[in-house]
């Protein structure tokens, strides 16, 4: 199903899945859930809190000459 939603299935396999989901309510439900979930994920905002960009940039520039090694 994942490959189907990513347009990553060959024509025959796509048709087979579409025939099956037309007849099987359970799989049709799962496919619908997955499709909806992907739409929501693609529009999901960044996790809060968001980055403090100036603080990260400042810290990185200050640390550029630190000796390497962990």
């Amino acid at each position: 199903m994942s490959a189907y939603l990513d347009f990553d299935l060959r024509t025959q396999a796509r048709a087979r899945l579409e025939r099956h989901t037309a007849e099987c309510a359970e799989c049709r439900g799962v496919l619908g859930d997955l499709r909806q979930m992907l739409v929501l994920l693609q529009g999901a905002p960044a996790a809060k809190p968001v980055a403090d960009v100036p603080a990260i940039v400042g810290a990185v520039l200050r640390r550029l000459h630190e000796p390497t090694g962990r």
Binding site: A47, V50, A51, V53, I56, V57, V60, L61, L64
Partner: peptide, 20 residues
């Protein structure tokens, strides 16, 4: 270093978000 700072500015929100 100033050029690198500009790269960090452009990408740090993305990197931070991915890490979260």
């Amino acid at each position: 270093e100033s050029a690198f700072g500009q790269l960090v500015t452009a990408h740090s929100a993305r990197v931070f978000g991915a890490l979260r």
